[in-house]
């Protein structure tokens, strides 16, 4: 199958140096506080198992409401690691809420001048997309460390941040076909498109709409996931993207896990797949559901801002360039 339309390339993409064994990694909580110190210790061990040297941010266990410290404290952890030349990469410990508070205060010039690997997901979607859209730096939508729960998740994480050649593609069939809903994509619109990766948590992503940090969607291969949201709410956010006129300009959309996103009202409702598919059918926009992206046991790490090829029929996302230098 031929790709549809001209392939955009991420010409301005800045790549962080690949992480190597023994590299020092800063661990931060830009959003909420970890559940317990046991979680933090667990995350430290995982980073050691990856072959890196974990350095904990000063404020990761601080508490300010539902956030891990005040905005100033969370910002300090992130910026001090970024300024520190001995720190090669930054991994988020957990999600929750709060990373979007930091966006106006980030030093984007510093980030472009000293590119580093940064990995996170859930509400940290705001942080990653702001950095990528402001600087061109390829950031990594991968599990927060408290969600690295399987060999697949672990290996894909390490592969994404350390491989200097093109990283492994992500496929619906990566997940064991042990139940009828896993392993085969649901494909409302078939198509093969090239584009630049963009996306993350749908609620967090759409909260950037209308702001000074709203990402460019034209020519993007979008991917979305979410957790603990009602179908009705998720339909609101997809509707925002549609009514903004931006969804029309995207190359295609891959949907990952929608963990615990069931019917929360007492009203009969349509499934998420029906509501979303019905959006894309009239636009004839390639899309599929079932990629291993998001908050579940087996989750791939996806570089943001990288040229990729999306085959919705196969449920396959291939990368066209290395994610790190």
């Amino acid at each position: 199958m031929k790709t549809q339309g001209k392939a955009p390339t991420a010409e301005k993409a800045i790549k962080a140096p690949a992480l190597k064994g023994g590299d020092r990694i800063g661990l931060i909580c830009p959003a909420s506080r970890p559940e317990s110190p046991a979680v933090v210790q667990h995350c430290v061990r995982i980073v050691e198992d990856m072959g890196f040297v974990p350095i904990l941010g000063k404020h990761v266990m601080k508490m300010h409401g539902y956030m891990a410290g005040t905005d100033a404290e969370r910002l300090e952890d992130l910026l001090s690691f970024w300024q520190d030349d001995s720190i090669a990469g930054i991994f988020c410990i957990t999600g929750g809420f709060g990373s979007m508070h930091l966006l106006p205060y980030l030093n984007y010039d510093l980030m472009a001048a000293k590119p580093k690997v940064i990995v996170g997901q859930d509400e940290n979607t705001c942080l990653l997309n702001a950095i990528t859209s402001r600087t061109g730096l390829v950031t990594f939508h991968g599990p927060n460390l408290d969600q690295v729960n399987s060999k697949y998740t672990f290996e894909r994480f390490v592969n994404a941040v350390s491989k200097t050649s093109v990283i492994k593609s992500v496929s619906a069939s990566d997940v064991a076909r042990d139940t009828i809903t896993l392993g085969y994509p649901f494909v409302p619109v078939e198509g093969l498109v090239d584009g630049i990766t963009c996306g993350g948590n749908l609620t967090a992503f759409t909260s950037l709409m209308g702001t000074a940090f709203q990402p460019e969607l034209a020519g993007r291969i979008l991917f979305f996931e979410d957790k603990n949201e009602s179908i009705s709410t998720l339909d609101r956010w997809l509707t925002t993207l549609y009514v903004s006129g931006q969804l029309d300009k995207t190359a295609g959309v891959a949907f990952g896990y929608f963990t615990n996103c069931g019917v929360k009202d007492n009203f009969p409702t349509l499934s998420l797949e029906e509501l979303f598919a019905d959006r894309f059918l009239p636009m004839n926009k390639p899309c599929c559901f079932g990629l291993p992206i998001g908050q579940a046991k087996d989750a791939a790490t996806i570089p943001l801002g990288l040229s990729a090829r999306f085959d919705s029929k196969a449920g396959l996302l291939e990368f066209l360039q290395p994610a790190v230098s």
């Binding site: 539902y66 508070h101 609620t203």
Partner: peptide, 16 residues
């Protein structure tokens, strides 16, 4: 939830 109100108010703040 308060954090959801926070998210929406932050969105308006970042939008000016």
């Amino acid at each position: 939830e308060p954090h959801a109100i926070d998210r929406m108010l932050t969105q308006l703040q970042l939008a000016g």
